[in-house]
């Protein structure tokens, strides 16, 4: 069973869609299960002021991506880098045991997005 938080994210799909004016973007894919996530971040003076996601994948992958967009809001890029699989799981209130891998895709896309605009 999914936690109440995960169910809320799957139901509401907050921060869904692409983001015009994004300063940092990335695409990540889990080749084993075929899930695909796009993350769009808009940073202003190193602070995430907007974040959006698009995900093709299982409910856990969608919940984890949505969680990342919420967790990184108003954080500095350095603070975003401290978001881990564990912290996403905490935020979600856990995931079904066979779905834990879904947070790895969310961490992966976040790290890639943060690197995407590095000089």
């Amino acid at each position: 069973m999914y936690s109440e938080k995960a169910r809320e994210l799957i139901r509401e799909l907050p921060n869904r869609g692409s983001l015009a004016g994004a300063t940092h973007t990335a695409r990540a894919e889990n080749p084993a299960c075929g899930d695909i996530t796009h993350l769009y971040l808009k940073l202003n003076q190193d602070v995430v002021v907007d974040s959006r996601f698009e995900t093709y994948g299982c409910p856990a992958a969608i919940a984890a991506s949505a969680a990342v967009t919420q967790m990184c809001r108003n954080l500095r890029s350095g603070e975003c880098r401290e978001i881990t699989a564990e912290s996403i799981l905490d935020y979600l209130g856990g995931l079904p045991s066979h779905k834990l891998h879904a947070v790895d895709l969310a961490v992966d896309v976040l790290r890639k997005a943060l690197r995407s605009n590095e000089p």
Binding site: G57, C58, A61, K99, L100
Partner: peptide, 26 residues
């Protein structure tokens, strides 16, 4: 993705079944 659609429908009170499940990364 069928499983995501299944859960979205379930959250709206509709029970169906899907043709595939993503499990432990595969």
């Amino acid at each position: 993705e069928g499983e995501a659609l299944l859960i979205s429908l379930d959250l709206q009170g509709i029970a169906v079944s899907t043709g595939a499940a993503c499990s432990s990364g595969s």
